[in-house]
Each structure stands twice: as C-alpha cells, then as structure tokens.
Amino acid sequence: MANIKSAKKRVIVNEQARAKNNAFKSDLKSAMKGFYKRADENKVEEAKDLFVKATSKLDKAVGKGLLHRNAADRRKARLQKRLDELTAS
C-alpha cells in the first residue's frame, strides 16, 4: 500500500472505477447474449428490442473508453447481420 495520501486516494478511486467498468462490461455482455438467445429462438420482436439496447450499450462503452470504436462497430455489424438474417427468413 502507498504511503502518500494522494497515492492512497488513487488506489481507492481506481478500484471504484474498475468495479464500475466491470459491471458495465458485464451488463453489455448480458445484453448481447440476450439478443443472440432471442435470435436463435426466432423471436423477432424481442430480438429487435434487444438489438437497440445492445447497440446503445456498445456506443456508451465507446464513450466511456471501455471499447475501441472499431471494436464496437464490428460487434454492432455482427448484431445487425444476425438481425437481418432473422428478419429475412
């Protein structure tokens, strides 16, 4: 553990930020899994709702610096492709 007051504070603040980031990433993964689950079950309307939520969470993750913009765009493209396949059939 650090001895300097500001260093101690940094340890605490970084731990809090890490916990928030992990919680947000977990929520993001859950949203994406939910979409894929509904897509596999051919529940189009539920999948569309979850698609909107998942893409929104991906955009927020980019804004928070948790994901690179290209990584989020790639994931959104995969979700969109899966949704298009679902609605086409």
Rank of each mutant, 00 (worst) to 15 (best):
K33W: 08
D40E: 13
R75K: 13
H68R: 11
D59F: 03
E41G: 03
A31M: 03
V52N: 11
D59P: 03
M32R: 08
R38V: 01
A47K: 07
F35H: 06
T55M: 02
K53L: 14
K53Q: 11
T55I: 04
A72Y: 01
H68D: 13
A72W: 06
A39K: 07
A39N: 06
M32H: 01
K48S: 09
G65T: 06
R69A: 14
R38W: 00
V62Q: 06
G63Y: 05
K64V: 12
L50N: 05
K48I: 10
E45D: 15
A31T: 06
N42D: 14
R75M: 13
N70I: 07
K57V: 06
L50E: 10
V62T: 00
R38F: 07
A31H: 02
A54C: 04
A47S: 13
R74E: 09
A72T: 00
K37C: 02
N70S: 11
G34N: 10
A71D: 15
D49L: 12
V44K: 13
D73I: 06
K43N: 15
A54V: 08
D49S: 14
A47H: 04
V44E: 09
F35S: 01
K53A: 13
A61Y: 07
L67T: 01
R74A: 11
A31Y: 04
V52M: 09
R75I: 14
A31V: 08
R69D: 15
E45G: 06
A54G: 07
K60H: 05
R74P: 04
K33Y: 09
S56V: 01
T55C: 08
G65S: 00
A47T: 04
E45C: 00
M32Y: 06
A47C: 06
T55A: 01
E46Y: 03
K60L: 12
K64H: 08
E41T: 05
K60Y: 08
N70D: 15
L66P: 01
N70G: 01
K43M: 09
K60I: 10
R75P: 00
R38E: 07
K48H: 03
K37M: 08
R69T: 13
A72L: 02
R38S: 10
V44T: 14
L67S: 00
M32L: 12
A31S: 13
T55S: 09
A61M: 07
L58H: 06
A47V: 04
R75S: 10
G34V: 02
D40T: 03
E41Y: 10
Y36H: 11
N42G: 04
L50Q: 12
